[in-house]
Computed example of a mutant assay.
Amino acid sequence: MLEELQEIVEERKRNPTPDSYTAKLLYHEKGEDKVLEKFGEEAVELILACKNKDKESIVYEAADLLYHFVVLLSKFDVKVEEVYDELRRRKK
């Protein structure tokens, strides 16, 4: 699933359109700071949902965090598969 999401993000990175939220993040005037800021914001929102023990919000915010995680990886030219490879290496 994350690979599919990354394909979509990469497509929007290659072919940005004015109505694409992904492209707006990737090409924001603040540059990489905007992507980092959004990832941090989403992490805090997930933490708060967990603190509130609100399962519906946890699921929603976790999805937001995963999306912004993939955007962050894309901004820094890292593939999800590279993260999986690192996790596999740690498993040994």
Score class of each variant (00 low, 15 high):
73 L>I: 14
45 E>F: 02
6 Q>L: 03
52 N>K: 07
12 R>L: 09
23 A>W: 01
55 K>F: 13
79 K>V: 12
92 K>N: 09
90 R>P: 01
31 G>M: 03
12 R>D: 11
67 Y>F: 15
42 E>C: 05
61 E>I: 13
84 Y>R: 14
90 R>G: 07
68 H>C: 10
41 E>S: 02
90 R>I: 10
66 L>H: 00
8 I>P: 06
77 D>P: 03
81 E>L: 09
27 Y>N: 03
25 L>E: 10
29 E>F: 14
19 D>R: 10
25 L>W: 10
48 L>F: 04
13 K>H: 12
81 E>Y: 09
30 K>T: 09
90 R>V: 12
55 K>P: 03
81 E>H: 00
88 R>Y: 12
44 V>F: 06
33 D>P: 04
49 A>W: 08
30 K>R: 13
17 T>N: 01
29 E>I: 04
77 D>C: 06
49 A>N: 05
38 K>C: 04
22 T>S: 05
8 I>S: 11
22 T>G: 10
28 H>L: 07
78 V>A: 05
10 E>W: 08
40 G>H: 12
42 E>A: 11
92 K>A: 15
20 S>H: 01
54 D>L: 05
10 E>R: 08
2 L>E: 11
26 L>Y: 12
59 V>M: 15
32 E>A: 10
72 L>S: 00
5 L>C: 06
46 L>Y: 02
27 Y>R: 01
86 E>A: 15
34 K>G: 07
56 E>D: 03
73 L>M: 10
12 R>N: 05
47 I>D: 02
19 D>M: 05
33 D>W: 03
45 E>N: 04
70 V>H: 01
88 R>W: 07
24 K>L: 07
14 R>C: 08
23 A>H: 01
74 S>Y: 01
50 C>M: 09
30 K>F: 09
45 E>L: 06
87 L>S: 08
21 Y>E: 12
69 F>V: 08
89 R>T: 03
77 D>S: 07
57 S>K: 06
